[in-house]
Design a protein around this nucleic acid. Sequence first.
RNA 1: GGUCCUGUGGUGCAGUUUGGAGUGCACGCCGGCCUGUCAAGCCGGAGGUCGCGGGUUCAAAUCCCGUCAGGACCGCCA
Length: 572
Amino acid sequence: MRTHHCGVLRAEDAGRSVALCGWVARRREHGEHLAFVDLRDHTGVVQCVVDGAADLRSEFVVRITGTVRERPEGTTNDQLPTGAIEVGNCSVEILNAAEPPPFPVSDRIEADESVRLRYRYVDLRRSKMQHNLRVRSKVNSAIRHAMERQGFVEIETPMLWTPTPEGAREFLVPSRLQPGRNYVLPQSPQIAKQLLMVGGFDRYFQIARCLRDEDLRADRQFEFMQLDIEAAFTTQEEIHGFIGEAVADATEAISGERPVIETLTWTEAMERFGTDKPDLRFGMELVELTPVFSATGFKAFQAACIKGIRVPGASPDYGRSKLDGLTDRAKSLGAKGLVWMRVAAGGALESPVAKFLSDDEQAALTSTMEAQPGDLLLLVADERRLVQEVLGQLRNDIGRPPVSDGPYRFAWVTEFPMFDGVDDEGHPIAAHHPFTMPHPDDLDLLETDPGKVRSQSYDLVLNGWELGSGSIRIHRSDIQARVFKALGVTDEDAEGRFGFLLGAFRYGAPPHGGFAVGLDRLVAILAGEENIREVIAFPKASSGTDPMTGAPKPVDARVLAGLGLRTLPPST
RNA sequence: GGUCCUGUGGUGCAGUUUGGAGUGCACGCCGGCCUGUCAAGCCGGAGGUCGCGGGUUCAAAUCCCGUCAGGACCGCCA
């Protein structure tokens, strides 16, 4: 049907007879004698010259045959890759007429997202979406090759899985053959892949679809894809190597540059950046100020922890209203307040609270924070974790570059705490999942001080986005029993929820561990997008609905009855 | 569950602060003219429940309340 794609033709193709297919991007008609038709396919646009009236409209689907020729002197278009040539002596075959599109198929104008999603098939014609989904395809391909090269076996796991009431809310699938009973869609292949380890596939991977029925965000959809891996007889370092190879290959395939991956501990990340997913592209690190104010008379600074961030040269940019905005933001994040200080030309600190601080304190503050005239200092005093999180968020709010700004700064964050907070009954809550191996040095703290137990779990972070997480798993039932006990999971509970897994572990489970990389997020960053919807062909809106299909929809009562279900009236 | 932003012909916006006739810009659409344009140009035209409902007012796109939709964030995401 066609001999070439539109966007690939160049001066050296002059003289070639071509047949092109695509959509009418634009047309410029000059009466009955001459018309220019810009024909678009996914490779780009080429100008076709019709001798006569074209009688075409935007987005008509056409096949154009003609001869490539260099454009006449003075009519070339430097803005266009195909701008040196045109297709002449064209004959146009309309394959399908089209109504005017609901919004222009253009990268210049971004239509409202609800309209874009409703007519996604039109939106996907835009070169940005074409590019993004092709980036995604290349990333998948690079990753698959990297894993195969490293001896990993691709194995599919079930989409109809068993409920494991723990962690993310699961999508339920009622059983027709077993009325009243349910499958769930897997929130990840976590347990399945551990069973594959017991099954002797010591290097497994899958580009896996995961489903979680939680509220959506710019970086979260119900459905998302993971590079999911698990390996037996391995170490944390080896797993980092496997994954590092895959994401570096993917990054190189898109950007041409091979990234390095740094490593820092969770504690270090929290102290320096106030988050477990630090964006290493910019400074403004959190500065420890607790010793500076250890003997202060200023009540607001008589706290367990004081830290600050220095915003270089920002003092003139932050008037009273912006500073109030920062204070409100800090309070909304849980801080009692935010202390701001401007560094004046002579180095003096200008702040509503400056008068409460001694000269020595002010001098120590200035030197500790390496404050320069014109800087803005932001300080928070409170419990350590809160101080870290508030300042970490403010650091991002103020300093974080757009996603599309380079470079790609990958980091492993290691030694996460085993537990995070406590549940209603006072039992610690697993920070990762209950099969995570504690740090070997901290095993004995399980019974005495669980809050201090570090785990052998680790996250991969890229430019402030959590790309994924993983861990070395518990493969010994004695350690698993101790962890369950710490979590307050009784033997019966454990048997009911994970019996098949624990059973499998009795039949020769190798030491193993793994990781999962969120591919939507990786692709979004590599495509320079702030929102993963931009790299997903058919995403849901943030309400969880699909503006194109109208899903989710009610179904006929008979369909429900066949599944043993009945809808209740909406609760009030 | 909560906080905030947005909603104005098909599309993108201005108008809302300080109420005064659906007032404006650009694109698109329809018709006409046009033989080298390229975001073609020129002339003419059509197209509106200012998201929806209620209230205040002589008068509401504009102020108030509610609601719906889209988005960002908090909670949530082992």
